[in-house]
C-alpha cells in the first residue's frame, strides 16, 4: 500500500506535467528524494502545493534518508528528505538542515498494565531480552511479550536507533502495520509495543519515558526523547529554484502545519 502512493503520485504528476507543458510554459518543478518515513507528510504537502499552484510538478522519490541526502549533495534533486539529523561531516560537506516536523514514537502497553513509566535504558533492555518479566518493573508476574514492526519499517528503524537496539531486538511478534501493533497490544495484557504517536488510541496506554508523557508539546520541546526530526536538506552554495523555494516556504508555513499534524507528525510551528 505504502508503495502505491508515490507511483500513483508520479504518474499523476507526469500527466499533469505533460498537460501543463502543452498548455503553457508555467509552473516549474520541485523534486524531493529521501526518507520513506516521511512519505505521508511529504505526500499531503505535495498535494496541497500542487492544488495551490497550477501546473507545478512535484515529485517524491522514496529511497531512504541516506540516499536522499546523497541525492541533494549530487544535485539530483531540489530538496533531500531525512528522518534523522545531519551528521557533522554531512554539514561540513555543504548541506543545511531545516527541521520540518518531529515524529514521536510512543511506547504502548495494555491499559490493564500497572507500569506507567520506563526510561530508555529499561525499554532497550526489554527489547533486547535482558528484562523478561513485568515483575522486575513493578508489574504483574508475567512474561513480557515484545511486539515490533517488520524489518525495513521506518518506525522500527527510528525506534531501534533511538534506543540503541539495532539488530538486537528479540521480537515475539513482527507486525506489518501500526494498526496491527495497537490491536495486538490492546488484546494482550502483557504486551509492549511501539507506534507513531499520532496513531495511538484509547485502546492502549502510552507510557511516559523518563517521567515525560508523550504529547505534541513534549515532542516539540525535545523532552520526550523517543522522537526523531523530519528534516529538509538543502545545499548551501546552490540557490533553490523559484518553485522549489516556494514549496520550501510553504512546507514551513503556518498554513502547512495542520496538514503535517493530519499526516501524523508534530509540526515545528
Amino acid at each position: 500500500m505504502k508503495r502505491i502512493l508515490p507511483v500513483f503520485l508520479t504518474a499523476l504528476l507526469t500527466c499533469s506535467a505533460l498537460a501543463g507543458c502543452a498548455a503553457q510554459q508555467k509552473g516549474g518543478s520541485v523534486s524531493t528524494d529521501g526518507s520513506t518515513s516521511m512519505e505521508e507528510v511529504i505526500g499531503v504537502l505535495g498535494e496541497a502545493f500542487q492544488e495551490n499552484n497550477d501546473g507545478v510538478t512535484f515529485t517524491y522519490n522514496p529511497t531512504g534518508s541516506g540516499s536522499g541526502i546523497q541525492a541533494v549533495q549530487e544535485g539530483r534533486c531540489d530538496i533531500g528528505l531525512s528522518s534523522r539529523s545531519l551528521k557533522e561531516e554531512e554539514k561540513a560537506g555543504g548541506l543545511t538542515e531545516t527541521v520540518l516536523a518531529y515524529d514521536g514514537i510512543a511506547v504502548i502497553v495494555n491499559p490493564q498494565n500497572a507500569v506507567e513509566d520506563l526510561d530508555v535504558d529499561t525499554i532497550a533492555k526489554i527489547y533486547t531480552g535482558e528484562i523478561t518479566n513485568w515483575s522486575e518493573l513493578g508489574g504483574n508476574d508475567a512474561q513480557i511479550v515484545v511486539i515490533g514492526r517488520e524489518a525495513g519499517s521506518g518506525t522500527r528503524a527510528g525506534f531501534e536507533s533511538i534506543t540503541g537496539t539495532e539488530d538486537a531486538c528479540r521480537y515475539r511478534q513482527e507486525l506489518t502495520s501500526t494498526g496491527d501493533v495497537i490491536t495486538t497490544v490492546s488484546q494482550n495484557p502483557d504486551a509492549i509495543g511501539y507506534a507513531s504517536l499520532a496513531a495511538v488510541s484509547d485502546q492502549v496506554k502510552a507510557i511516559s519515558v523518563g517521567g515525560i508523557a508523550p504529547a505534541e508539546t513534549t515532542v516539540k520541546d525535545g523532552s520526550y526523547v523517543i522522537q526523531r526530526p523530519f528534516v529538509l536538506v538543502t545545499k548551501n552554495d546552490a540557490k533553490l529554484s523559484d518553485t522549489a523555494q516556494k514549496f520550501f516556504d510553504f512546507a514551513l508555513s503556518d498554513e502547512a502545519a495542520p496538514l503535517i499534524s493530519q499526516a501524523g507528525a508534530v509540526p515545528v510551528k
Binding site: 513480557i144 511479550v145 515475539r172 511478534q173 496491527d180 490491536t183 495486538t184 488484546q187 494482550n188 502483557d190
Partner: peptide, 19 residues
C-alpha cells in the same frame, strides 16, 4: 483469528502470547 483465537489460545494454554 486475531481477535478470538489468539487471545483464546493465550488464556487456554496459559502461554504469554497466543500468536
Amino acid at each position: 483469528g486475531m481477535m478470538v483465537l489468539v487471545p483464546g489460545i493465550r488464556k487456554l494454554f496459559r502461554v504469554p502470547d497466543g500468536a
